[in-house]
């Protein structure tokens, strides 16, 4: 049989087209996103100026809309002297602690159970009904029940928050497993993968982008439940501080609490984006 000429010789002229093609696309993407950031910053500044002008010109009484200066003064006062049995730091840490504990519980239970639901029909059939049922309920509707069962202490709030973070993480892990392309699984099997190797090398990394999306939803769900739960039953936390201030019509302290919660939400969102870039840089590429 005739032996081939060196097959590599054939390919020396082939250019790595996509690498060069990707650069302009990336550049365009960066321009667009930095442009968006600029627009967002301008909007934020405009809102602040509107707030300043509204209070300066006396469009609303301080009871309804305190001035930025008053809010800043209150911020310092609450930070140093405290409000409603705790300094600002203590309230923030109380809220932050609750949501972080709940997120940990949600991930530690939700990811393995969701993966199992994706892999096994029996687990999926059994668990999807109870999780689907409670996930459909507004959390504040069953909070009174949790308070009857667990009391007004930390456990009822932790359970409420964990329930709200667990479901989206669990469902997204399940969806992640179900979304693995069958060709990718077949390819691994024909390369000799055992079931365990298939799971650790193919299914788990394939499901990771979906799991991170679920985590993002869980953070949002957890934050909204957190503040609501603290409004109803708590003796610490930003929600509790806001509720106490509202009872005394201290609108400026309410503003301090709101701004801090917004800042927390922004921090969480930024953290999640960083985590996605770090863990799944290939997301959307294939």
């Amino acid at each position: 049989m005739t032996l081939a000429a060196d097959p590599r010789a054939v390919f020396t002229h082939v250019q790595p087209a996509p690498t060069t093609r990707r650069l302009p696309a990336n550049r365009a993407g960066k321009t667009v996103s930095s442009g968006t950031i600029l627009i967002s910053t301008v909007t934020l500044l405009a809102l602040f100026v509107l707030w300043l002008v509204a209070t300066q010109l006396g469009w609303a009484t301080p009871l309804f809309l305190p001035s930025p200066a008053e809010v800043l003064t209150q911020f310092q006062a609450v930070a140093v002297d405290g409000y409603a049995d705790g300094t600002l730091l203590q309230h923030t840490l109380a809220s932050l602690g609750r949501i972080l504990v709940a997120l940990c519980i949600g991930v530690l239970l939700g990811v393995p159970l969701g993966l199992l639901m994706g892999l096994n029909r029996w687990v999926r059939g059994t668990l999807s009904v109870p999780i689907g049922l409670y996930w459909g309920l507004p959390p504040l509707a069953y909070l009174p029940l949790l308070i009857i069962w667990l009391g007004i202490g930390e456990s009822s709030k932790i359970v409420l928050l964990s329930l709200s973070t667990f479901a989206p993480i669990c469902f997204s892990a399940q969806a992640g497993v179900r979304s693995v392309p069958v060709e990718r699984i077949n390819a691994a099997l024909s390369l000799g993968a055992t079931r365990l190797q298939l799971f650790t090398n193919i299914i788990l990394p394939s499901a990771l982008p979906e799991i991170l999306t679920g985590l993002r939803i869980a953070v949002a769900a957890g934050l909204s439940c957190l503040v609501a739960a603290e409004l109803i039953a708590a003796r610490s936390g930003l929600g509790y501080m806001i509720m106490s201030a509202a009872n005394f019509l201290s609108t400026d302290v309410v503003f301090v609490g709101l701004i801090l919660i917004a800042a927390l939400a922004f921090l969480f969102a930024t953290g999640m984006r960083w985590l996605e870039r770090k863990l799944v840089p290939w997301k959307g590429k294939i």
């Binding site: 392309p181 060709e183 990718r184 077949n186 390819a187 099997l189 024909s190 390369l191 000799g192 090398n201 193919i202 990394p205 294939i286």
Partner: peptide
């Protein structure tokens, strides 16, 4: 399926 048969797919199955 097994490692004694290598498969090249039409669709991209790289990780």
């Amino acid at each position: 399926p097994g490692g004694d048969r290598g498969v090249v797919f039409q669709k991209d199955t790289l990780l």
